[in-house]
């Protein structure tokens, strides 16, 4: 198995000294080349799980293995795209893309790779621009190019289009799908959009909140590129599962607010 998530639990110390269980006993097996979405209401720990996979945070118990190596810290074997573009504003677009390449590649190779990946996200003419000169969607494209430039097998995406408007979001979804078809990377994609998950993924993991657990794990067997009419039935099923979840979260939050 390419990526194994074994019995991951994660608790946070809350301000009032209580333990907040963000994740409880998560087990997943992910195949190489799979496009997998983690879907759930806010607070279900899907971003926490992704950040553990990235090596950015440590699980309270359990482990993540990538090609049988336990992930303990961030590294070149996995790359990540955040909800914010997280570009360095003092660097040009090209310098941002070559940032992860500085140590292992010559100047010439870096240039070539930057050109290649910027072309892939249709930003070739903007290589010399600075991030503040680009729109939000373009910035996120640069972030994707930067992650691709690392050329790791595993690409982790944490609600990458969450802050974008609907049109831009759809265009970027199509681009990511195309990049995935071309590069055959393994993508773990966190989202709270049911449609986005169904449109892009081979497999959707639905998570519940507090504590975050896996409540459903199913494959999406629709032809790509997926059409709205084919996705509708599946969307409704998922909505039904999530509806009770979201209601529970709302109830709990109201109770918590009321008890203070």
């Amino acid at each position: 198995m390419y990526l194994n998530i074994d019995n991951i639990s994660k608790s946070f110390q809350r301000q009032d000294e209580q333990q907040l269980k963000a994740l409880e006993n998560i087990n997943l097996e992910i195949n190489e080349g799979e496009f997998i979405s983690l879907l759930g209401p806010s607070g279900c720990g899907k971003s926490t799980l992704l950040s553990i996979m990235a090596g950015l945070s440590k699980p309270t118990s359990g482990s993540v293995r990538l090609e049988n190596n336990i992930i303990t810290e961030p590294g070149p074997d996995k790359s990540m795209v955040f909800q914010e573009p997280a570009l360095f504003p003092w660097m040009s677009v090209k310098e941002n893309v070559t940032f992860p390449l500085r140590k292992n590649f010559s100047k010439k190779e870096q240039e070539a790779k930057a050109a290649e990946y910027l072309k892939m996200v249709h930003l070739s003419q903007f290589a010399e621009n600075y991030p503040h000169e680009l729109s939000g969607g373009m910035q996120q494209r640069v972030a994707i190019a930067r992650a691709l430039a690392m050329d790791s097998g595993l690409l982790l995406m944490d609600e990458p289009f969450g802050a974008l408007d609907e049109q831009t979001r759809q265009v970027l979804q199509d681009e990511v799908e195309k990049i995935w078809l071309d590069t055959k990377k393994t993508i773990v994609f966190v989202t709270h959009s049911i449609r986005e998950a169904i449109k892009l993924s081979d497999r959707v993991i639905i998570m519940s909140a507090r504590p975050g657990t896996v409540i459903s794990d199913f494959r999406v067997n629709l032809n790509r590129p997926r059409q709205q009419k084919d996705m509708a039935a599946l969307e409704e099923d998922v909505m039904a599962i999530l509806k009770t979840e979201i209601e529970n979260v709302m109830k709990e939050e109201l109770q918590y607010a009321g008890s203070r």
Binding site: E73, P74, M80, F82, F88, R146
Partner: peptide
């Protein structure tokens, strides 16, 4: 913090 996280995922 997002700059630090992003940089760390890129091996810095």
């Amino acid at each position: 913090p997002i700059y630090l996280q992003a940089a760390r995922t890129m091996g810095s």
